[in-house]
């Protein structure tokens, strides 16, 4: 497989997940950050070990580092524009489209606002990135047990939030 084909395959496979993760974590410009992630990942494909799991962990490790950098930069420059759903022209053709029609991306992101940072990271990496507990632990540089504990606390906290029921009410 040539370099161009390998790069295109990796990009098509993981770009949407990386973009979803960066969006869920509140990166200011998710698409630009996603492209920077692949600009860092693709030239190092030859050094990645561990097969598909290793490549996924590597990609989301870079994405996590980019997200942390973006959050630090946002703290230094707190002024930022709010997300406007009506300007979002992206379309979904999957079965989850109905849920997104009922719960807008802004509301989905608002679900995570009531959680601590580590719990948001765990939920985003597991649900959006599709990582396992071990991969999430490696990405966040934590132990698997702490990731499980964070995930459990995040779910309990989400259930307690009254906003969740309001959003999901028909």
């Amino acid at each position: 497989m040539s370099g161009t084909a390998a790069f295109s395959l990796v990009y098509k496979t993981y770009a949407s997940r990386v973009l979803g993760y960066l969006t869920a974590r509140g990166v200011e410009d998710p698409e630009a950050a996603m492209q920077e992630v692949f600009l860092s990942v693709l030239p190092r494909l030859h050094s990645v070990q561990g097969g598909e799991s290793g490549l996924r962990t590597f990609i989301f490790s870079v994405a996590h580092a980019r997200m942390v950098d973006d959050h630090r930069r946002q703290r230094r420059t707190p002024a930022r524009l709010p997300f406007e759903p009506e300007l979002d022209q992206r379309e979904e053709t999957s079965a989850e489209k109905e849920a997104l029609l009922r719960i807008s991306p802004h509301e989905v992101l608002a679900l995570l606002d009531g959680l601590p940072r580590d719990q948001r990271d765990v939920l985003s990496l597991r649900l959006v990135g599709g990582l396992t507990v071990e991969q999430t632990a490696e990405t966040m540089e934590k132990s698997a047990g702490s990731v499980k504990q964070l995930q459990r606390r995040a779910l309990l906290k989400l259930r307690e939030l009254a906003a969740v029921k309001e959003y999901l009410a028909p």
Binding site: T4, F7, S8, Y11, K12, A15, S16, R17, L19, G20, Y21, T23, A24, E31, M34, Q35, F38, L39, L42, P43, R90, E91, E92, S94, E96, K97, A99, L100, I103, P105, V108, L111, L112, L123, S124, L127, V128, G129, G130, L155, L158, V164, Y167, L168
Partner: peptide, 26 residues
């Protein structure tokens, strides 16, 4: 349902690579 809706963020449409990334892939 909340977790499933949160997971739908992974199915966002992928933008075409531009700029330096497009040059790298090409």
């Amino acid at each position: 349902d909340a977790l499933l809706s949160l997971g739908t963020l992974s199915a966002l449409p992928t933008p075409a690579p531009t700029g330096a990334l497009a040059a790298l892939i090409a």
